[in-house]
Amino acid sequence: MGKHLKPYPQEKRGKHLQLSTIDELKDMARQVRRDVIRMLAKSNSGHTGGSLGMADIFTALYFRILQHHPHQFRQGADHDMLFLSNGHIAPVWYSVLARSGYFSLDELNYLREVDSYLQGHPTCESGLPGIHIASGSLGQGLSVAVGAALGLRMDGKKGEVFCLMGDGECQEGQIWEAAMSAAHYQLGNLIGIVDYNNQQIDGEVSDVMDVEPFADKWRAFGWDVLTCDGNDIEHFIDTLEYLRKDKSRTKPVVVLATTVMGKGVPFFEGTMPDKSNWHGKAPSKEDEVKALEILGITVFGDF
């Protein structure tokens, strides 16, 4: 709380946590899902489905893949940078940022409240560590990431730039302006990750405005394309480690990570019988109790 405090008080940061085994990561992903459910139920608003669906990817990135240090945000010479273009899944980001040491777990109690650092959509104006730029209005993040990748390359920095997007978000024309420019400038230090769940607020992406043939579109725009199961931590890590092994990349790469919206809590998963989904809804108190029971407790403990 108290987002007027700038910069974020150092003593409120957590310990930098990294995890090595797949079992630990899976356990953390479960805890992150618990955090998401509890934050959203508490604030009684927010985006449940995408946050749950991306819990495995965020866990893998922050506790294993990213070259980063939570206590040297914006100062790390060769650190990776991460941009979340579909800002509405902020709750899952807030959870991994807090648990990897960027800020106090206590902040998770105040999602979407007045004066909270944890705004409904991510913002950097409060100086909260871990977030470089605001996002929420869709379609801008990949362009931002292209700019950052150019900036790092100009300075000869080794860090790579990650940009997370939604598949529905790729209906925005600006994504393709950005895609074109990334290939034009041969940004081998840029990695896009698309939450490929075929869901958006009005229904299934293929019904609302089909983005297929999706992989072909990226290839046609000059990108290398990898696919993986975004809810299989091991598979996702293997995919990312494989692509990062090649240090001489001259093309941007996009990972189309197939996920299930609402993953981890069966009654939030995928398309509901009435064709709706859990894109923009928050769990009720009863939903929360049931979901937490299904997820079970972890060694990391609730916030």
Partner: peptide, 20 residues
């Protein structure tokens, strides 16, 4: 940036996050 002004503005913001 070519004829893509939206991309140009957001790219500029991205460059600014790296200190440019």
């Amino acid at each position: 940036t070519g004829i893509a002004e939206a991309n140009m503005i957001s790219m500029s913001a991205g460059l600014a996050t790296t200190g440019k």
